[in-house]
Design a protein around this nucleic acid. Structure first.
Length: 316
DNA sequence: CGAATTTGACCAGCGC
DNA sequence: GCGCTGGTCAAATTCG
C-alpha cells in the first residue's frame, strides 16, 4: 500500500480558514451570520431555540452539500482509478522496468500500486516519473500488507536537516548516501512507543532540493502523541498537522488517517472504520474541504491518468 | 548525566 | 563467489 502525498504550505487543510465549517461548534461562535445566538445577550428560550434550530438546519444543509461534493469526488476518483487499473492490466510486462532493487524495495514498489494508491506526489514533482513507473510494476503481484506511504514536504532548500515534523517522535538511527541521489538519506524509527515498528526514510528530492521525501513503513501501534496529550491545545486532531516551527506541513496517511482507499471506502461503505460519528464527520469534512479547495488535486489526478492514457494509446 | 545524534562498520540481498 | 548497494547496529560524540 503506498499512499503518497504532496504537501505544501500552500495547501491549507484548516477547515475553518475561509469557510465556516459546522464542526467547529458554530453555535457558540457566530461568524458573520447576524441571526446567530450571542451568548452574552439575554435571549428568550423561544428565540434561542428558534435560532438554534435555524442554525442546525443551516449546518445540516452545508453538511449535505459537502457530503455530496465528497461523494462526487470519490465517484470520479473511483472511475479514474478503475480506468487506470484497466490500463495497467493492458501494459505488457516487458515495459515494466526490471527489478534491480532488492526484495524489500521492490515489494515496497508493489505496494504503491494496489487500490490504496493515492499519489498526490505526482503533482509537478520530479518524483512523478518514479511514482508513475511504480504504478506500472504492479501487474499481478500479490499485495503484501506492509503499509508504505510517501510524503512530499516542501522546505527551505537551505534547510539542511532532514527533519519532517509529523507529530510523532522519531529517533534517527542511520544516514546513508545512496547511489541514485547525492543527498544523504536519513533513517528514523518511531521512538514514541518502544514497540512501534514504524520506520521512516527521509531524503531530499534529487531534482528539487527544496522537497523532502519522507517514506513511512509500517503502521503505528499507538495513538499519535498529539492525541495523547489532552492539554496540547491543538485545534486539529488526526494525523494532518501543521508544523508551527517551520515552513513545512506534513500529512501522514497512517493508521488513523484515511488513505486513498479509505476515501473510496468512505464513499462506498456505510461503515467506515471510524471511532465515532464525530471523528468520521470531521475526517469527511476535512477531506472534502482540502480536496474541494484545492483544484490542483483533481486536476493533477486527472492529468496523471490521462497522461498515461495518452502515453499508452499510440503504442497500441 | 542522560538522551539524542553521528558515523563507520557490519550484514544481507542482488546482479554479474 | 565477489562486489555493489541499501539498511541497520552500536560506539563515540554532542547537546540540553
Amino acid at each position: 500500500m503506498d499512499t503518497s502525498s504532496w504537501v505544501d504550505t500552500s495547501l491549507d487543510l484548516n477547515p475553518s480558514s475561509d469557510r465556516p465549517l459546522p464542526l467547529d461548534t458554530p453555535k457558540k461562535e457566530p461568524s458573520g451570520n447576524g441571526n446567530l445566538i450571542v451568548f452574552g445577550k439575554k435571549l428568550s428560550m423561544k428565540e434561542e431555540s428558534g435560532a438554534l434550530v435555524e442554525e442546525l438546519n443551516r449546518v445540516n444543509e452545508e453538511n449535505k452539500k459537502l457530503t455530496e461534493k465528497l461523494a462526487a469526488m470519490c465517484e470520479s476518483y473511483n472511475a479514474l482509478q478503475s480506468q487506470l487499473t484497466n490500463l495497467m492490466s493492458k501494459i505488457p510486462e516487458k515495459e515494466l522496468s526490471p527489478s534491480k532493487k532488492r526484495k524489500s524495495e521492490s515489494s515496497n514498489n508493489n505496494h504503491n500500486n494496489n487500490n490504496d494508491n493515492y499519489n498526490f506526489g505526482i503533482i509537478g514533482n520530479s518524483e512523478s516519473s518514479s511514482t508513475d513507473e511504480d504504478s506500472c510494476k504492479k501487474p499481478k503481484e500479490e499485495i503484501i500488507k506492509a503499509k508504505v506511504s510517501r510524503v512530499y514536504v516542501r522546505t527551505e532548500a537551505s534547510d539542511t536537516n532532514l527533519v519532517v515534523k509529523d507529530g510523532y517522535q522519531w529517533r534517527k538511527y542511520g544516514q546513508k548516501v545512496t547511489r541514485d541521489n547525492p543527498s544523504p538519506r536519513a533513517y528514523f524509527k518511531c521512538s514514541f512507543a518502544p514497540t512501534c515498528p514504524v520506520k521512516k526514510k527521509v531524503q531530499r528530492s534529487i531534482d528539487d532540493q527544496s522537497v523532502v521525501i519522507a517514506t513511512y513503513e509500517g503502521e503505528h501501534n499507538h495513538l499519535p502523541p498529539s492525541q495523547m496529550e489532552p492539554t496540547s491545545g491543538s485545534s486539529h486532531r488526526g494525523s494532518a498537522s501543521l508544523n508551527p516551527s517551520g515552513p513545512t506541513m506534513t500529512l501522514d496517511f497512517g493508521k488513523t488517517k484515511p488513505s486513498g482507499s479509505d476515501v473510496a471506502r468512505i464513499c462506498s461503505s456505510s461503515q467506515p472504520k471510524m471511532d465515532s460519528p464525530q471523528v468520521r464527520q470531521y475526517l469527511v469534512e476535512q477531506m472534502a474541504t482540502s480536496l474541494t479547495k484545492d483544484p490542483k488535486f483533481t486536476a493533477a489526478l486527472a492529468a496523471a491518468i490521462s497522461g498515461r492514457m495518452f502515453q499508452q494509446s499510440p503504442v497500441e
